[in-house]
Design a binder for these strands. Structure first.
Lengths: 154, 154
DNA sequence: ACCAAAGAGGACCGGATTAGTACGATATAA
DNA sequence: TTATATCGTACTAATCCGGTCCTCTTTGGT
């Protein structure tokens, strides 16, 4: 199970709220209430998204947040990148010769790149809009997975 | 940055060692020495891989580990699945109605499935063999980013 | 039959990461 | 000028994960 941060999850939810709002400006408080996520946390998420240029913020008395562009043009890759930095599986890949101690022994430095690119492409192919449109008659709980835990798993 | 466990990283390295060994049996101690990873940790990794049917183990006095099948037939998806459980981005996706508190509000439960499938496909497309063969003249450090403190694990 | 080697399995602990909170600063419209 | 709402940063608590240790089981050799 590859984990992405809970905040990223929230980000998607919040963006969903924003996308439904007909491009109207919504305050952090509104979004917090609508999403059920505590205000400070939503605020944090919104800040990160604004930083990543996914949404725009308007300060001041009647301020709020708006999608920076239509939901169709926002990809999951964009969102994840905003929330977690560049999309890549963490490994020796991430540079800096000092970082990986078994560097000289590891026969495959750099080949993660291929994997990373594949994943990046996969994530770029899905837009926020697609995440919002729930297909008719889909199964809400596709995989019944064991609680997390690698050792406990299987 | 999507994180996969450090153990998964080790798994790839260790499997690399195994793949080079002409299908000979190697003990955990040997692999630990060759990979530079502490024995208990390597042992744990090997156990998990054996559990996932990636490698086979032979107990007893002249025991050891061997790849369960040729490196060409072992995909990165297999390895990650063995180390971290089913491949999916953690989200409301992962079932159990109690798990997600904003469930009723979240307009996009289940659409992660599309993303997950894409990622799974991407990972399945890369084999251990491919990870081993370093392309001629590749750049060892494609992205220059600060090293993540690796806890000085020898 | 016994002993040594090697893996299997589980429990445990410390450290690192992250979620969540709080507070002060800044901008804006009325 | 004041009320409102975001911005930015610092801090704390809880969770998760990597790593280690210990004991049991299996197996081959003596």
């Amino acid at each position: 199970m590859i984990r992405l941060n809970r905040l990223t999850d929230y980000a998607i939810v919040v963006l969903g709220q924003l996308a439904q709002g007909d491009s109207e400006s919504r305050t952090a408080a509104q979004l917090a209430q609508d999403s059920g996520v505590p205000l400070p946390t939503v605020s944090k998420v919104l800040k990160m998204l604004a930083h990543g240029k996914i949404i725009t913020s308007q300060r001041g008395v009647s301020g709020g947040y708006t999608l920076a562009r239509p939901a169709v043009l926002i990809t999951v890759a964009d969102i994840i990148a905003a929330m977690e930095g560049p999309i890549a599986l963490t490994a020796c890949v991430d540079g800096a010769s000092g970082g990986c101690e078994v560097e000289t022994l590891c026969p495959m430095r750099g080949n993660w790149d291929k994997v990373n690119r594949a994943i990046r492409d996969a994530l770029t192919a899905v837009t926020l809009q697609e995440m919002l449109t729930v297909p008719a008659g889909f199964d809400p709980f596709p995989l019944a997975r064991p609680p997390r835990g690698l050792a406990a798993a299987q």
